[in-house]
Amino acid sequence: MTHTLFIKQLASELGFDHCGIAKAVQLDEDARRLETWLNKGMHGNMQYMENHFDKRIDPRKLVDGAQSVITLLFNYFPSAQQREDAPRISKYAYGHDYHEVIRAKLKTLLLRMQEHIGPVQGRGFVDSAPVLERSWAQRSGLGWIGKNGNLIHKQAGSFFFIATLITDIALEYDSPVGDYCGTCTRCLDACPTEALVAPGVVDGSKCISYFTIELKDQLIPDKMKGQFDNWMFGCDTCQDVCPWNRFSKAHQEAEFTPIPAILNFTTKDWEELTEEAFKDIFRHSPLKRSKFAGIRRNINFLSD
């Protein structure tokens, strides 16, 4: 219990908004769901989703002797929004790349644990390894998986990054909470491309985020014309319409302060952006994941 309290207090000091802990076990039910999802081809061209299946469903294959999975939520809801007449960008990409920011915090968390507790072994992950983050967040009492496939926290909504620290020490474990989506279907009804094919099931091969970010070096199919609702990088529609996000509050992380260009660029500014300027303005941004060619493709697709 002492170690658990120390970890949760330290997580808060490092800026994480919520911390939950679950016992490291094999996720049999998730394994069945993932296998079905893959067999239906809902991962599209994201072949990496097929890799390391055994590690995805069992954290003990990622960390020897793993006993606990610590899940941390980091708020990214911005205080300012884009111009309404500009190509739309998912809110998580307004500031600096979250991988870099949160990975540093995870390293600090593990180092401080080792200093305080002893020879703790562990590995931290943030959207960069075969880890079922949302399932672990749900198991550790941080919320439920909504009909839009996102983790929803009852007091704070869903605009969170999820980080995971798998460790070889036993801790006090949290209990899952209930599902509070009820009969609401706003996300299912609002999805521009009908990618939400069932409650909690996202057909990734239909998702705007897939087409604008994951679909590397390929043209977006013509059949998707007119369906993107002006989303140029990612999509927040299913979160924007979720009633639970009325509880979202602006984050306090300086690294996630919106890049001025994201708030101020007009459609014309994006269309006239050069590769040199892109590399300079967005050198620390998640937008670099799509590279200049991908951003240019997405803008052209919206304007055609």
Rank of each mutant, 00 (worst) to 15 (best):
A93P: 10
L171E: 00
I145Q: 01
S135E: 08
G146P: 09
I102H: 05
L171V: 05
Q114H: 03
A86T: 15
L132M: 14
Y173I: 05
R112G: 06
D97A: 09
P119C: 03
K147A: 09
G118V: 12
D97G: 09
P119M: 07
F77N: 11
L111A: 15
Q155V: 04
E84K: 14
L151Q: 05
G143K: 03
G124W: 10
Q138Y: 00
Q138D: 00
E84R: 15
G141E: 12
P78Y: 08
L109V: 03
F125Y: 15
R103A: 12
F159P: 12
D97P: 12
R123L: 09
F77L: 04
A104I: 06
T108D: 11
Q114F: 06
G118C: 07
R83H: 14
Q155W: 01
R112A: 12
D97K: 01
G146S: 06
E100G: 03
K107F: 07
K147Q: 10
P87M: 07
K105P: 06
V126F: 01
G122H: 12
L151N: 08
K154Q: 14
K107L: 04
W136C: 00
A93Y: 10
A170F: 02
L110E: 04
H116W: 11
S135G: 10
Y76S: 06
Y92N: 06
G146D: 00
A86M: 09
G143M: 03
A137T: 03
H116S: 10
G143P: 07
A129W: 13
G143C: 07
Y94T: 08
G118Q: 11
A80P: 05
Y173S: 02
L171N: 01
A137S: 15
G124D: 07
K105Q: 13
D85R: 13
D97Y: 05
R112D: 15
Y92E: 03
V131F: 00
F77C: 15
L109E: 14
M113I: 10
L111P: 00
L165V: 04
T164D: 02
W144R: 08
S90N: 06
K154R: 14
G95P: 07
D85I: 08
T164K: 04
R103Y: 12
G146C: 02
L132E: 02
D168T: 09
H153K: 01
H99E: 11
I162Y: 00
S79I: 02
K91S: 09
A163H: 08
V126Y: 07
P119H: 09
R123Y: 09
Y92R: 11
G118W: 07
A137Y: 04
R123G: 01
Q138I: 00
E172A: 13
G149F: 11
E115A: 12
Y76H: 11
K147W: 02
V120D: 14
T164A: 01
T167K: 07
L151A: 03
A137I: 06
H153V: 03
G124F: 05
Y92M: 04
Q114E: 04
